[in-house]
Design a protein around this nucleic acid. Sequence first.
DNA 1: CTTCTTAGATGGATTGCTTA
DNA 2: TAAGCAATCCATCTAAGAAG
Length: 745
Amino acid sequence: MAGTISRIRLENFMCHSSLHIELGDHVNFITGQNGSGKSAILTALCIAFGCRAKSTQRAATLKDFIKTGCSYAAIVVDINNQGEDAFKPEVYGNLIILERRITDSSSSTILKDQHGRKVAHRKDDLTEIIEHFNIDVENPCVIMSQDKSREFLHSGNDKDKFKFFFKATLLQQVNELLETIKDQLNNADSIVEELEKSIKPVMRELDELRQKIKNMEHIEEISHDIDNLKKKLAWSWVYDVDKQIGEQTVKLQKLKERIPACQERIDRNTVLLDELKKELIEKEENVRSLAKKTREVHMMRKNMDDSITEVVKQKVELEAEHDRHTDMLGKMNKRLRQLQAQLRDFQLQHMQHTQVEASQIEEDIQNIQSEIDYAHSNITRLKEDEKEFSEELSGILKSISEITKEITENDKKIQDLKYETDDLLQRQSNKVTAFGGQRVLNLLESIERNNRRFKSPPIGPIGAHLQLASDFWSFAVDCAFGNLLDAFIVSCHKDLQTLRECAKQVNYNHLRIIVYDFTRPRLNIPDDSLPATKHPTVLSVIQSENHTVLNVLVDQGSAERQVLVQDYEVGKSVAFDHRIRNIKDVYTSDGYRMFSRGSVQTILPPNKRPRAGRWCSSPGERIAELKNEVADFQRINSEKRGQKRKLDHDRCNLEQKITSLKRKREPEERRLANKRLQLDDAKKASAENNSHTAVDTSELEEELKHVKNDIQQKELLLQKANVRLTAILREVDDRKAAYKTFMEH
DNA sequence: CTTCTTAGATGGATTGCTTA
DNA sequence: TAAGCAATCCATCTAAGAAG
């Protein structure tokens, strides 16, 4: 039957290393002792079908499901896909294989067909299958986990139980569905009502249209009748015309009989007509030649008359022009004399004026120039002083900012040192607080109280169970393990739950808990798995009386593959120069992390807040050292603050000096600007004076020249007019003589 | 050369905490 | 108690290396 699970395979999932279960067609029972992993199978099914890690209430993240000491977990679920309910049988065939893999850093879902071929890998494809088969792992009636059943049975409240039942049996869903359907029905009803209302006017319109169509049909019949009548009328006209044609044909026949007699008379008259025509042509020719001659004579006379009148007119005009020119010439000569006199007067006046004014202006300009020079030298001096002071001020400001920066940096250092001192002071009273702070103490107390609930008491924090061969590597080891040192180790998942409860009680959230088999002997690492280098590994510099702690640091922290080096340069050569096998990361004693992944080489700086000294063997000494350092920094800071105060005082003085200089300089500059404007004005005035007189004479001279030119032109025109006048007089005489001889003829 | 596995990056979804 | 923000989870993609 489609949708049933036929087989489940688990690898490294929770407590199962490798588990195969074949399921029957109907009801299946799984039995086993407490803690044998029955509910792990149910959890695996939930995870396979896409449940979130948290909602199983068995782990915080997916990777918590990976069996301790393993790198991955896998769940494979075979789902039957036969029968009419089958999901995409053409793609998957009779069987859908759902494979879920979880690794430390990622997880994936793969869907395969009956032959094990990969078909899909996206979450959406899985969701489609889940929806198709109506698998609802979050529904407590589909999967009733231990916690759910306990919660259900122990909730004494009937209301809560009904709520649970209501949700589980999908009644809630049905209820919601019914509500939405009711809403939709109401909506549809109101829409139908509205539509009915709106249809009424349309029906009325339809009736009117039908009436119109009926009328149109009647009109069509009438027009048909009209057509028929028109045709009849046309035919009646045809009959009439036919009758008339018959009568006209008879008349035509009679007229044809008279044609030969008429033709004879026509011939006789034609001969007579030809003779008369010839005579007419001759007479016409005579008349035409006589008329032509008369016209020519008339024309010549008229022409002569016209030319004489024209020439006389020209003569009169030329005489008038001559008089005009002579008159104008006289006037121009008079103007010329006037202008010459004016020019002489002007030149005389100008000579007298310029001499007096020029000497006055020259004196003014010299005075102003000397004042300007004085003011300019004053300003330059003031500016130089100001510049000198400003430079000094900027130097002081620079040193002030440097000192302020140093003070801030030192304050920060003091703060960091104080933090470290506080840490150490706390640790002096209890070493454990180095790994998680004050809350670890509360957690340990809580563990103590719940001691009986644990199968084996948890080990932690891991850092508290470690000793270092030498303090030199403490910072590097701290960087290499990071938060792993704050983690706790438990022996089974039940203990993990209990420990998490304890942590919650004391508000220690996000406590890292590692599940590990306490009975496992100390891991024996073969030499060929260790990095081939003379530098120590993290594993080689740590010691612990607890082998589980060491095992966990190897499994979770790769302690045997983290190499420690003295300084940055050595670290780079170890990490990148020769590709040494089995090296995971290289840490320098001052906390730099270096590693290469493929071709990419990465160097990460140390943590911002160093926590070296977590394993410090003598915190007392270190505290004294830190206190000395703090005192040093404080002393330096107080010195620097003194310097800063002095510099601030100097700065104030300089600023005052600069302001007073500025106050002196500004009015001086304004005066200079005023004087410059005066000088410009004076120069402009003198220039204007000169140019004005010059322009006046030049204008007169120009006019004079112009008038002379005009006179010359006019004289030329007069001469031409005289020549034309004599020519015209001669022409008049000639034409009159010619006319006289013509008339005599 | 192809396929599989794994680590790491990325961005949307979810969860938890703080504050008004 | 709801809104806003930050931290965390997890699906998905890509690239490198391993295996066949």
